[in-house]
Design a protein around this nucleic acid. Structure first.
Lengths: 196, 196
DNA sequence: GCTATAATTGAACAATTGTTCAAATAAATA
DNA sequence: TATTTATTTGAACAATTGTTCAATTATAGC
């Protein structure tokens, strides 16, 4: 029976995310996907191509998640807050029993490969840019909703949010309680130029 | 002639920092240190032990750097600002011609190895804690200098600073200008509870 | 200078790596 | 059902990995 391509990529993403590109061996993938090497190579071409599929999936799912939160809340700023909280709280070492790694797959990939596999790193960077654009859209939405100051620069805020998420998720790998994480998160969002 | 141990560790640190633990091959080290495998193993025992030496050196140098800035400026907050600027500006993709990688070696190590080499990752985490303690000391110094509000929580501020540095350095790997980086940095420090 | 100790050398090893491909099996078409 | 096409299988390969160690060279003590 033909393998389920979408499911295979999903599983591969989880493994690559956890172990990194170089840390994930083809034999790990074979076991985790329950596929023999020939099938993997017939279906994806190479470890690198499969990794790029994983980056694409992760990026697409991140964007969808942002949009999901944006539609879920009347206040787009609240939506962003809840999105970040979701990403970051699964990111406190406290709840490390969860399956998903704490850090961002894209950031981790850039860190790992920027000085040795420039092309893959660029792939991840493009993903981060797409997510950032999505953040900017949501900030603009917050402005039309009247929750964010009209003269606020949504592009700049999107950059700011990326930096904050990267920082929190990286820090979330260390020993820190969920409460402390949320406290920092609250402080961050309280500094946003909310409309009066 | 006996090799220069300190210099060897320094060089190894640079390579590990750039390529990561798994990305750095023993043959890369042999070339970069100009040492034969037997010498490296006689001197350091294994790739992993040499890597830990690198983590220690990086940690120690980071702490020394913080102290250096703290003594250089009358205002400890200014010192921290200049320290972070130094770390982060070498971190904008604009100046990627520089030798040193943009991100933090300790953060990069935790990201790479947290799910596969727990012991090494812990080593890096301990380094990060030491640096954070140093930040807290400098914030306390700022209080005795009268530059920081007396009731400010130095431990909390140290955590906050770690998050900001992690975020900025991670973001600094992407396409962004030095000016934009400094602008974000200025905003961050302007949010500190300065004494009036 | 002679010996004893310390350090370096580099060829070699066993294990692991990403990948291939002929054979086997399943699915589709008739 | 028979035949063609699509897919999976897993043993095998060449390259690379971290590491070892007997031989060689340098250093130190006398």
């Amino acid at each position: 029976m033909k393998y389920d391509r979408a499911q295979a990529i999903q599983k591969a993403t989880g493994l690559f995310w956890k172990l990194g590109f170089q840390g994930t061996k083809m034999r790990d993938l074979q076991e985790h996907l329950d596929m023999r090497p020939g099938s993997i190579y017939a279906g994806f071409g190479s470890k690198e191509l499969l990794f790029k599929e994983a980056l694409n999936l992760y990026t697409e799912q991140s964007i969808q998640q942002v949009r999901h939160y944006a539609h879920q809340y009347d206040n787009a700023l609240t939506a962003l807050y809840e999105f970040v909280k979701d990403q970051v709280i699964g990111s406190s070492a406290e709840t490390s029993d969860s399956q998903k790694p704490n850090n961002c797959f894209l950031v981790k990939t850039v860190a790992e490969l920027n000085n040795s596999h420039a092309e893959i790193s660029l792939w991840a960077q493009i993903g981060l840019e797409k997510v950032e654009e999505e953040f900017a859209e949501v900030f603009k939405l917050a402005q039309t909703q009247g929750h964010l100051e009209q003269h606020a620069n949504s592009l700049r805020l999107a950059k700011w949010l990326q930096v904050q998420i990267m920082g929190l998720r990286a820090y979330g790998q260390l020993k820190i309680t969920k409460d402390e994480m949320i406290k920092m998160l609250d402080e961050m969002f309280s500094s946003l130029p909310k409309a009066t």
